[in-house]
Design a protein around this nucleic acid. Structure first.
Lengths: 322, 322
DNA sequence: TTGAAAGCGTTACCAC
DNA sequence: GTGGTAACGCTTTCAA
């Protein structure tokens, strides 16, 4: 009610609306009054009047994975720079997504961003029915209001196969996660490149995206044979695998076993691990997400963000130099 | 406008208000109509009418520290269970807090939760002036609308000194973080217990709460002397210290150096580290925060949540058994 | 450029 | 137990 201190509410509204026409005199009066009263316009009625909240919801889970929390941090910062607020909800599976989104809809959030993969057409349909734009940071079903920004896993994974071969790998292993689009893309990219190079077989084990999963998967891999070059679909699992290989199996890395991950989480560069991996350009990913938030026309294809190879000690076997 | 499908808006409002008096018949009619139209009450006008948003804001930084993201995860889940939403904003320093909170105020958030320590009276005053309840997960200035829920650092740190002595430590070291209330409490608790045990000197080095800080601090510690028992104010720094001690200094843990941390982050139990530490009971902490959100009377003293000792290999020297 | 007035979709209060 | 009606504090449209 800052309008007691000057003129009409229209004037106040206009001074606080970016591109409105107010005379300098008017604006000055209003600003002075606002400062005196410590007045700040309430955003709630604005949302009601305009239908836009400037709130972006993020539905995420897996906070144990530094990759997700890194993305979350970049996202929360860039959203704020873009003048938007973030509402955060915890969601473990895409199956729960439509429930979460419909709840969020009641707050009139402008869009939902999620690292979850939308795995089925039925979930996608339920989501589209809610009429809220969704940007997923994962491969999966898209179309309608669902858009995707993904890491270019196939290209990177082919590169991994290449590097492991060059570094002297001869018996390959792959540690993946539960069935999911990214899991499949990474394994395919890896397998294809291997087969181009004449390697048509490799051991595989499925972990759970986390450290323990990688630890167990590595042991399984060695029950099947004696791989000397392992590609893991994410760093956290790779670190678990490294520990299993070193402490449980008593093998050396990279001398006995080469290993690579994906994500470039902070721990991967700790000297104990010094893991070769692919860096996902988080700012680029988030920028792409923000750009998608502005778009309205259905997306033709997911935006692919290239990942860059980070070579560290786990792939630098001396034979390479020899 | 589900009211086209039955009766008055008051009736609709009542069916969607938990403790309201509606006849089963009425409720049935409304629910049916809502289901048919896919109607869900818009929460924005409700906020405007009631003044309560059921939104709790969280102002946090330091996502690189798993302790914070663990707390965040528990918080986001429990808030939801309590029927509230979380708005997340990134904030590195308490100095920025009043700016952030006043911005949040425009969304009519019910309260702000932050792991940041409110270090000065002037920041506290500025915050109180905004008339928004604040719960900090850290020691510091409280009073007015500012409440605190903290880990009982002093007791735990005394316990650390005790354990390191019993395990055979004779020359002590402490790795802390930048000046902050928790840093001081942990160092004091540790130092006091040492001095009770007749140890009046210890080496100290200041890191930066993170891995690199701990790594460098450990090296500094060993430039000052040759400590054989080190207490770190948090796990992340302890892990950095462990790597420095092992790879750079070539010493063994626990044979040559005992070490302890605080927080019990996931990585501390990885076999490579197997770090003794203090577990902060995150659900208990968050429950206490939620309880504080309901309180209105000024808080007399910060709520202290005990931390429990987790003994692992880094403090189990064989001399202990001897 | 400015002011008046009508909405926005709820809740809250008051009769019935 | 129910319906009517006045807020809530903005934006928007329309005249001046």
């Amino acid at each position: 009610m800052a309008r007691l201190a000057g003129v009409s509410q229209s004037a106040v509204s206009r001074t606080f609306t970016p591109g409105a026409s107010v005379s300098p005199v008017m604006r000055e009066k209003v600003v002075a009054a606002a400062a005196a009263l410590g007045y700040q316009p309430n955003l709630i009625p604005r949302i009601m009047a305009t239908g836009r909240s400037e709130i972006i919801a993020v539905a995420a889970g897996g906070f144990y994975n530094p990759y997700f929390t890194d993305i979350l941090e970049v996202l929360v910062q860039m959203l704020r720079d873009a003048g938007k607020q973030m509402m955060l909800v915890h969601t473990e599976s895409d199956l729960a997504l439509d429930g979460v989104v419909s709840e969020l809809a009641r707050y009139r959030v402008d869009a939902v961003v999620t690292p979850l993969s939308i795995r089925s057409r039925s979930v996608a349909d339920a989501l589209n029915a809610l009429r809220i734009p969704i940007v997923t940071l994962n491969a999966g079903v898209t179309g309608g209001l669902i858009r995707a920004v993904i890491s270019d896993s196939e290209t990177a994974s082919a590169r991994a196969a290449q590097l492991l071969c060059r570094a002297g790998g001869t018996r390959f292993g792959y540690i993946g996660g539960p069935e999911s689009p990214q899991q499949n893309l990474r394994e395919q990219g890896f397998a294809r490149q291997l087969s181009i190079r004449g390697v048509h077989e490799y051991a595989r084990a499925i972990g759970n995206f986390d450290y323990d999963g990688g630890y167990r998967a590595a042991l399984q891999l060695f029950e099947q044979g004696r791989p000397d070059a392992i590609y893991c679909m994410n760093d956290l699992a790779a670190l678990g695998a490294m520990d299993a290989i070193r402490s449980r199996l008593g093998l050396r890395i990279p001398e006995d076993v080469l290993i690579m991950g994906y994500d470039n989480i902070a721990m991967s560069q700790w000297p104990t691990y010094d893991l070769s991996t692919f860096d996902q350009d988080k700012p680029a990913i988030v920028r792409a997400v923000l750009a998608q938030l502005g778009e309205t026309a259905p997306q033709l294809a997911p935006i692919r963000i290239p990942a860059s190879l980070i070579e560290r000690r786990t792939t630098s076997r001396s034979t390479e130099v020899a």
